[in-house]
Design a binder for these strands. Structure first.
Lengths: 136, 136
DNA sequence: ATAATTGCAAAATCTTTGCATACCC
DNA sequence: GGGTATGCAAAGATTTTGCAATTAT
């Protein structure tokens, strides 16, 4: 399971008890917590952890590329630890539930030059919208 | 130009001077303003318009399906009036600039049943990430 | 030892709400 | 006229910041 912690240690990320619980809470599949949810869960393991520290840790994990920020059009951003295996998201328009889904038909065709407006394109993000079983 | 205003009138949207300037400000291609930007521009045409009214109007336009909310991972949501013609977004990771791009290779293959987790899938959203000419 | 991380509390951002007043249909 | 939209100001939700105290390496 705890690939995330090991990867972080391997990359020399200074480990503190706070950072450890943040990483533990995030680790897994189909995990897409808000900063506040991370804080609540982390505080169950380490009661004195502060919100600011959670935000700090999340920001660094994003910078390191170990966690991806996902805006699901709800208010708060969500954090996805599944950054190493490319995937897409399936989001419930009503309750916000997110599932990871995996590209089936090879990678998306790149954007043709005449549609690039001079941009240097580095990636593409795909999100499916719909209703989850519970909301349908 | 003002397809948006006409469409809204046609749908019986109660028209007020505030709503008119909001619609005017939003209308066009490659327009992706934040609520606050809409407010600033609207206030140039109608100084006494309030932020709350702008939020109300935007919320209704989204509900009506005439405007689409776009979260670009920056902080504030952006509003895209180009809801009638399907398109995708090309977003600058540094400055947040957004351009509309148009699907070239037909629609994306639908999500296969075994990847749906019981969801009723209603649409898919594609966002290209990169750096705009000015930021590269 | 030393530089980085933490916690706190306050501020910055973005959005929503309640209610009296003004206005569209 | 009747009901809806507006403006205001205050509250709510989310995230960031500055700085002294603590802690990992």
């Amino acid at each position: 399971m705890s690939d995330l912690l090991e990867r972080l240690r391997g990359r020399g990320w200074r480990m503190t008890s706070q950072r450890r619980v943040v990483a533990e809470v995030l680790d897994g599949e189909h995990v897409h917590l808000t900063a506040d949810e991370v804080h609540v869960r982390a505080a169950r393991l380490l009661p004195e952890i502060s919100r600011a520290t959670v935000y700090n840790a999340l920001g660094e994990l994003v910078t390191l590329g170990e966690v991806v920020e996902v805006s699901t059009d709800g208010r708060a951003k969500r954090y996805d630890p599944n950054a190493h295996r490319p995937h897409q998201h399936l989001v419930c328009s009503r309750c916000g539930l997110i599932r990871d889904v995996h590209p089936t038909a090879g990678p998306l065709a790149g954007l043709p030059a005449e549609e690039r407006f001079g941009f240097t394109v580095s990636g593409v993000e795909v999100t499916y919208r719909g209703l989850c079983p519970a909301c349908a």
